[in-house]
Each structure stands twice: as C-alpha cells, then as structure tokens.
Nucleic acid binder design. Structure first.
Lengths: 224, 224
DNA sequence: GCGATGCTTCGGCTACCATCGAAGCATGAA
DNA sequence: TTCATGCTTCGATGGTAGCCGAAGCATCGC
C-alpha cells in the first residue's frame, strides 16, 4: 500500500529530499534520511516498486527522482494535512545536530541557519516570496551590495533562477536556493565566516566564531 | 505522521468506508475493517488525533466522519497513485467471503454482485456514469419497469439522488447507491431473490438459488 | 434499581519490519 | 590486472505496533 510507503520516517525523509525535483543518488538519500546505505537500498527498492520514484543509472551511481508531478502533488497534500493539524513530523532524521544547524544543500545554505536567513530576508522586505517563487527587491539589491558585495549581474544565469524557495528537510520550511543562495554561501566561505566540514562526504557547514557573529548581525532572529 | 496513519490496512479500510461522506459508528467501522471493536477504538482515536476524522457523539453511539474534503482529496490522490501502478491493495479486510460477495451498504447492494450489477447497467447503457454522478437513461427506465416493476416516480426523493456511485470497500470499485440502489435491493428482497443474513448485525446478503439465477440473467457478467 | 448495548482502557502476545554488519556485484580508475 | 567506490543482498536482531480477551465506564431501556 502506497501510504505505508510514505509513512515510514526514513522513506518520508527521502521523498522530502526529492521534492525539489532534482534527482539524488542512493547514498545522498541515505544521508538525508540518516540511515546506512544498506537500509536505504531496501527502502529505495520499495519506493520504486510502489511507483513513487524512478531510478536512473549513471556510472556507478544510481539517481532517483520522483516519478512525476502527481506523486509530488500527493506528497504535498499529505504535508498540508500534517501542517494544518499541527502534526508536523517530530524530527526523526539524522541525529547530528550540526547537520541540522547548518549544512550544504547542493550549493547553498540549509538547516536552521538557512531557514533563519530566508526568514529575515523576508521580514526585512529584502525579498518577496510567493509560494516557491522568490524575487529580490530593490532594497534587497542594495543590502547585498553593501554587506556582501554581491551585485545583481553576478547572479544572472541562463537556466537557473536568481532566487528559489527550497524546502528544508530538517526544518520543514523554506530556505533560499538559486544563484543568489549559492552566491551568498560562496561569499560566506570567502569571508571565512563558514566552511564545509573537512570530513569527506559531510554536508555540515561549520561557522567560525566571528562568522557566526557577522551572520547573526545580518540575519539573526535574536534567538541566540 | 499522517501517511503512516493511512498506511495501516485496517485504518485504510475505515477511511475508505467513510469516503462516501456519511458518518459511521465505531462498531460499523470495526466491521468494515474486519477487526474487533477494541482494536477499532484504538485506530479511531489515532485517526482522530491525526485530524483525519471527527467524532460526533449521539446517544451511546459515536459517529465518525472524514474531517473535510481536503482529507477526502488526499485519500483519493493516494488511491489514484495506487491504482495506476497496479498497486491496488491486495485484499486484507474481513475474511468472510460471503461478505465480499454480497452485502448491504446502508440500504443497497454491495460487494462483488453489487459491483457486477453496476458494471452491467453501464455496459447495457441503462445508466450513464460520470465519476460519482450516475443518471438513468430512457432505456434504463424501460428496463426497470419491465423486469423489476420499478417506476421512476417511486424513486424521487427531496434530498437523495436517484443514482449515486458508492465506492465498494471490498472491490474498490463503484456499486449503485441512491434511491434506485435502495429500491432494487428492496425489490430483490420482495421477490425473494435475496435476504439479509439472519444473524444480528450481519451485513451479509444471501441469495436464494433461483434468485441468483434471475439476478445473473439480468446482471451477470458470465463469470459464474 | 437492573441488565443490555456501545465504546474504551489495560495487559500481554505476536508478527512484522526497520536497522545494521558482513559479504557480494557491479562500475570506474590506476 | 588490482584497488576503490557505489550499491545491493543476506542474515540476525530488536523495537514497535497491531491485535484480542477481559474488564471498566457510559448510556439507554425496562
């Protein structure tokens, strides 16, 4: 039965990770779900048998993507029901708190800090968001130029949008993707505010002490 | 998590039984799911906690209905996914084969024979169906008058439609409800073709030998 | 009051399934 | 070829949740 496939926490995490439409490898999905590759393999074959995801072999990698928009739609529907009853999933995934705080999502910042950043951008009217769509405001452009030395022409890309809302897997809320999300993350690295964890394969992003302060000054919500 | 609530076979059966929009008592739902009242009680409280169903106390009964159309929509979506991947749930419910063959759904015929009947009505162009909506054709009216002595004016009712598609829980396909469905079932009883099982609370409908033949002559699909 | 009915709670049993270690196959790199 | 990487299969373990019998409340009817 389909629903029981989605019901398992590990599988739900994988599906959520796939919700942005991109394909991910088996091991990436394992990492997202916080389980070992063996377990993930079992889950993935079940999801595939259930028609929820489709595999694509590429070299020694196996990429998985959601079968189609219908699947995504149903998953959204379920998430909607969950959200409105305040039945937001109690976190189960990876134990690693560092991963939950700040991590790389493709090439941009995710995790608590990523969500916090987008929240602040929105609250300060530096961006405007409608569902998945985000646009940079004039104030936002000034802000970026002043504090991060990012100019709009650095962000144009033939196929990729400047801003995009990306569903944050640990927070279940949006963080900022797109060329701007990537550029900001890159800038954080250049400014030595943060760096990807050294351990190979890790998605954790470690902020330096000063980096954390600077970040909080711009994007903090006063929580810490 | 919502999906896991729907994932359990017993709960899925209950929800399916509620899909027609009516409210059912806890024990009716237990029966639909083929489990004891104790177990059902546990399931129902979980579904309620998950916001999928809402209770309504009435005397010593407790009626449950789906919370709203959103819930029904998501359930339909899941069923849609299940259907298209040929992943139709393999029957789990009540073991009783008689219950699966013919039973009462409120006041009309359900089960294998009920589905078969609607199939034949449709195939013979006696009714036309669009999703949940069913309408009787002119040929259908003649057919009913001739073979079952049912006239259209017997079927008018201020609030209830003449025909309605009712999702068959065991077959997962539609059977005929509405005043016509009820009238036909009543006629079968009057003609002594079939009768509700004597055991109290049972929904099984037993066809007599001759009744089965007559029924097959009108609505049989040649399977048996 | 009494018993009957509908439903819930409790306790114990069982079965299923997610999980991981270890080993097995592929593919790609050297 | 040999080694490393990515993924899968196998086998064993453990936790969780569905399930039912028995008992406990509530409501109804007498």
């Amino acid at each position: 039965m389909i629903a029981s496939l989605v019901g398992d926490p590990a599988r739900a995490n994988m599906l959520t990770a796939l919700m942005n439409g991109r394909a991910l490898t088996a091991s990436e999905l394992a990492q997202e779900a916080g389980i070992t590759p063996q377990t993930a393999s079992s889950h993935l074959s079940k999801l595939e048998a259930g028609g929820l995801i489709e595999p694509e072999k590429q070299g020694r990698h196996r990429y998985y993507r959601l079968t189609d928009d219908d699947v995504a739609g149903v998953l959204e529907g379920l998430a909607g029901l969950a959200a409105r009853t305040g039945h937001m999933r109690v976190r189960t995934g990876p134990k690693d708190p560092a991963l939950r705080r700040a991590r790389i999502c493709y090439d941009h910042l995710a995790g608590d800090l990523g969500v916090q950043m987008l929240d602040t951008l929105r609250a300060q009217n530096l961006v405007r968001q409608k569902k998945q769509e985000i646009e940079l405001t004039a104030e936002g452009e000034r802000f970026l130029a002043k504090h991060l030395q990012i100019s709009p022409d650095m962000l144009t890309h033939p196929r990729r949008p400047v801003c995009k809302a990306c569903l944050d897997w640990s927070e279940r809320r949006h963080h900022l993707a797109g060329t701007l999300g990537a550029a900001m993350m890159q800038r954080f690295a250049e400014l030595k505010w943060a760096a990807r964890d050294a351990t190979p394969g890790s998605r954790v992003v470690n902020f330096t002490r000063t980096g954390e302060k600077q970040f909080a000054a711009l994007f903090g919500d006063g929580r810490d």
